[in-house]
Design a protein around this nucleic acid. Structure first.
Lengths: 249, 249
DNA sequence: GGCGGACCTTGATCCGCATCAAATAGGGTT
DNA sequence: AACCCTATTTGATGCGGATCAAGGTCCGCC
């Protein structure tokens, strides 16, 4: 299944782009946007398909416009670890690097705003706003990776699940500011197996701990994927993190 | 012991600086170096002392000139996870952020080349070479963090130890190109406890696995800290990584 | 409306690593 | 040389999560 899906989607105008203010182009002036408008092309990848394989030649970089993708590493014997969750506005690929370092897989259908690497690198050299924004985003990702290292190295299975849930809730909240106070609700964008790959667990352990949190009333399940959080502070207590706002958000 | 050691050391000229070609200033022209020369001040921190505490106000950024420091996160109940190992030329602090996100601790005596944050940020805005280099370094650190996520999430204790040893060997090799082929030798720069914090293990498990690798002839110990690797490929097999050059670097 | 397959849950058992507890080895100091 | 302090090793035991093994549920499809 290494076939590249090259489904090309009609471009949105940068001005109307939903990720305009968070993506790598966030700091660009309107003349810079016009230039990007000329370089970019959209590409849509169906759910479940791999966008790039680790080690593959990669001649483009991209921003996630919509959908969710994952970055994963795999060992020879098949053990896999997710090392990043890519959400709308996140950046894929690395300027200055020819091969992909990780597998990039679409979890849901994903739309990418792509740039051929060479023209993008050229423009980056001329446009400090892009490099600056990319630096900010990379520093944020580094913080997220380090927070994840604490989770992987030191948290219990239950704490890991609770932490993942809070992260998903916070993301949803930041996108569609929902009514505070009321119970939070959302759909899990990940299968149990993907959660396990993210958390350094097996899918059986994930399933058991989700059930345990349900039994203890921390979460309410409707179906397999729909979750309600009756009391967010209660969930926070389960993460093992500092109760107050110790975490960077 | 929260006292800041403010020992100030006489500055080296940038031109003579041992990290000149790897640090954040690597791409600077000589006029830019002169400006940095005017901003910088050296500071030396004794082994074991904490440079900054997570959450502290941090009004400077710095490059490690010599010595080794660690970045660690701590949970309320005392569980700790090292999230970075800082070697000469590595960068400390984040432009645009007021508080430290992690504890920074000197493992050996450390000399820092510091810049007050505001003047550094100003210069960064005017000097694309600095921002570009910082972006490269940050992307490298992100890769390292993600490799570490795989280790923390999926590797066994023995594989973790073997991986740490190969990383230390590679670093030594990259600094002082030593005779290939011959047995590799080095001193561990970390205590068993620090290794445990890095690897997401307990110090007892670290000690046991080091002993096991010694029993199996993978490593030879002289004293507690001095290690000889009779056969580097043998050590590589123990890491669980792709046998060939699958790894970056 | 029955069937196949993906996803999920639950149970039983095992094992790797944590935990608790001593003992030993250096290294520096007096 | 005797002593102390810290780093390290080693042993005994227990637990958390992996592994192995059945089911169960939902959904699209014929």
């Amino acid at each position: 299944m290494r076939a590249h899906s090259l489904a090309t989607t009609p471009n949105l105008k940068c001005e109307d782009c939903p990720i305009r203010h968070r993506a790598v182009c966030a700091k660009c002036e309107s003349d810079e946007l016009r230039e990007l408008d000329g370089l970019k092309y959209y590409r849509t990848v169906p759910a479940g398909q791999t966008v790039v394989w680790s080690g593959d030649e990669m001649d483009f970089v991209a921003s996630i416009v919509s959908g969710i993708a994952t970055l994963t590493q795999t060992m020879e014997d098949g053990r896999t670890q997710m090392v990043g969750l890519l959400l709308p506005s996140d950046f894929v690929g690395r300027p200055g690097r020819a091969q992909a370092a990780y597998d990039v897989t679409a979890t849901t259908e994903v739309t990418l705003c792509c740039f051929r690497k060479r023209p993008f690198e050229d423009m980056m050299r001329r446009t400090p706003n892009i490099g600056q924004r990319l630096l900010e985003m990379t520093l944020d990702e580094l913080d997220a990776a380090r927070e994840w290292m604490l989770l992987l190295g030191r948290k219990t299975a239950r704490e890991k699940i609770a932490t993942l849930l809070t992260i998903i809730v916070r993301r949803d909240a930041s996108l569609q500011l929902m009514g505070r106070d009321g119970p939070l609700e959302f759909d899990l964008p990940l299968t149990r197996e993907a959660m396990a790959d993210y958390l350094g667990l097996t899918l059986e352990t994930v399933s058991r701990q989700v059930s345990a949190l349900r039994r203890d009333g921390v979460i309410v399940l409707k179906g397999k994927r729909h979750i309600t959080i009756p009391d967010f502070d209660r969930l926070l207590e389960e993460t093992g993190d500092d109760a107050d706002g110790g975490m960077l958000t």
